[in-house]
């Protein structure tokens, strides 16, 4: 599905801190603003902003805070939003299980991660025990 990604151009990039619970809302609102401005429909907007909420909350609850980077992309035909969520928390011990859903440490990492994966076109996760977690997602406008 991400076969066009290598041709894509980054139009903008901004990084936001996730240090407090309110920052989850800031990240989500910014994601919605970018998606709406780039012509994402209501369903795609809800999917993207919900994914942003889930991942930002994971950073705050499980990672002890971190950053979100929001990027606008274009592949010449359509626009995309890429979001990267990083924390320096404990990492996810059993990633396979976490991605299957139903896995829960503090609250509901399971549904958040496995559910988020179903909302976007591209999903990548890099987690190291004791070092932290980085989740990258991309969603494109539809035609």
């Amino acid at each position: 599905m991400g076969s066009l990604a290598f041709e894509s151009q980054t139009l903008s990039s901004e990084t936001m801190a996730i240090d407090r619970e309110e920052d989850i809302v800031h990240v989500r609102k910014r994601a919605r603003m970018l998606a709406q401005a780039r012509g994402f429909d209501a369903f795609a907007c809800a999917a993207l902003t919900t994914a942003a909420s889930e991942l930002a909350r994971n950073v705050w609850v499980h990672g002890g805070g971190g950053q979100a980077t929001l990027e606008e992309l274009s592949d010449g035909n359509r626009f995309g939003i890429r979001m990267v969520f990083r924390d320096q928390g404990p990492g996810i011990a059993d990633l396979e299980r976490a991605l299957q859903g139903g896995y829960s440490t503090a609250r509901s990492l399971g549904l958040g991660l496995s559910g988020t994966r179903r909302l976007v076109e591209d999903f990548a996760i890099d987690t190291r025990p004791g070092e932290g977690t980085r989740v990258t997602i991309t969603k494109w406008t539809r035609f």
Binding site: A42, F43, S114, G115
Partner: peptide, 14 residues
């Protein structure tokens, strides 16, 4: 519940 909210929650498995 709005249509896009219902669709998103069910897609997520919730």
């Amino acid at each position: 519940m709005r249509p896009e909210v219902a669709a998103t929650l069910v897609r997520m498995g919730y």
